[in-house]
Amino acid sequence: MSAINALPVVRHRHVDIDGVRVFYREAGPQDAPTLLLLHGFPASSHQFRRLMDALGTRYRLVAPDYPGFGHSDAPRPASEGGTFDYRFDELAEVIAKFCDALQLQRFFLYMFDFGGPVGMRLAERFPQRIAGIVVQNANAYEEGLSPMARALVALQPGEAAERELGQLLTLEMTRNQYLGGAGDPAHIAPDGWTLDQHFLDQPGRKQMQRDLALDYRSNVARYPVWQAWLREHRPPALVLWGRNDAFFPEPGAHAYRRDLPDAEVHVLDSGHFALEEEAPRIAMLIDDFISRVGQR
């Protein structure tokens, strides 16, 4: 009988953060180097399932769902008289407390899409905890904003914004985010966009996403702060980028070298959801990166 490489045990849990049940997936030895996996829009920790299988015997991998995403609670938004303000500051606050609850004292950040603004806010708050960063199509530079992204940043609350954002939350658009720019669409399972749309279609969740979209301008306003943080702290950095990303084009990847000259940049023949298509290669690159950098 041929040998089969061991697969990790992946645990699926919730933790209470100020009354919000935050769902997370976790794999790997508790004493191994830790990788905090921050998902994007409109995804959840589900997007990291293959990465956890690939790396979960060597590293501790922790992947939470933000409030209003995936299997986490979705408190009624403050914009409709509820208790939770769906802004990036608030998402980052929840994830900061999540890190405290799980006693994550030193870790690598994997930041994808929305995970960029959440992760960089976390880095501002806990610079001593950041062992390194893995950036996958998570923008922090003006040149990484496409016309589509700039149009989102320019949106003002009102009926026009409601119409524009309504189109962004459809099954067709969710599917296109996964397949757009893919080198080979046959490598991308339909499960991701199907599950994402299932959660988007839950009662009240589209309003939460509209609130976050209208707050996206706050991220662009913080780009200079994040760039200064990168220059000051010089974290080891691995930048992975699907070159055919219609939202965050390739120049956004190379811009990181302006503030992190030693950053390792790999441009992949894929789109925005490059991990869905390039998981084997990305896993090998991350394994090589963390094994060299360690927990210094």
Rank of each mutant, 00 (worst) to 15 (best):
R125V: 03
G119H: 07
T34I: 09
F247D: 15
V22N: 01
A149C: 05
R292P: 06
D89M: 03
A123Y: 02
G180M: 08
L240S: 03
L165M: 09
F114G: 10
S2A: 13
V293K: 02
A182N: 05
D191P: 10
P127F: 02
E80V: 13
G166A: 02
F48G: 00
Y110T: 07
R292G: 07
R231Y: 05
L109Q: 10
A32W: 01
S2F: 13
Q227I: 05
F84Y: 12
D196L: 06
A182P: 10
N176Q: 14
I286A: 01
S218P: 06
F69P: 01
R25Q: 15
H46G: 09
G242K: 07
P29N: 04
Q177E: 15
A63D: 08
M1T: 14
L51I: 04
L91C: 08
Q103V: 14
V265F: 12
I4L: 15
Q295W: 13
Q136K: 07
Y141Q: 13
M208C: 09
E90Q: 08
Q105T: 13
Q197Y: 14
R296C: 12
D259E: 13
F108H: 12
D100E: 15
R13D: 12
T174C: 13
E172K: 15
A186K: 12
L179T: 08
H46N: 10
H266F: 10
A3N: 10
L109A: 04
D269T: 11
F108M: 09
D89L: 13
G81D: 01
M1I: 13
F289C: 00
F199R: 02
Q207A: 07
E26Y: 08
E277F: 01
D184A: 07
R258M: 09
I282M: 14
L171S: 01
A186L: 11
F108Y: 15
N139H: 04
I17Q: 00
L165E: 06
F273H: 08
S146H: 02
P77R: 00
G68R: 03
P77A: 00
R129K: 03
R281F: 07
G116Q: 03
V265R: 11
L240R: 04
L195D: 10
R231D: 06
S44I: 05
R121E: 08
A274R: 06
I4D: 13
P117R: 10
E232S: 11
Y216E: 14
A221P: 11
L35Y: 00
F88W: 08
N139K: 03
R205I: 01
F126E: 14
G119R: 08
F41S: 11
A221H: 12
Q136F: 10
A63S: 02
Q177N: 15
Y66N: 11
L122R: 04
L238K: 09
A283N: 06
F112H: 15
L61H: 08
N137P: 10
R121D: 08
H254G: 08
F98H: 00
H198W: 15
I188G: 10
D31K: 11
N244L: 09
R292F: 06
D65T: 12
P147H: 02
P224K: 14
D191S: 13
V153M: 15
F48H: 01
G271D: 01
P190K: 01
D269C: 02
G271M: 00
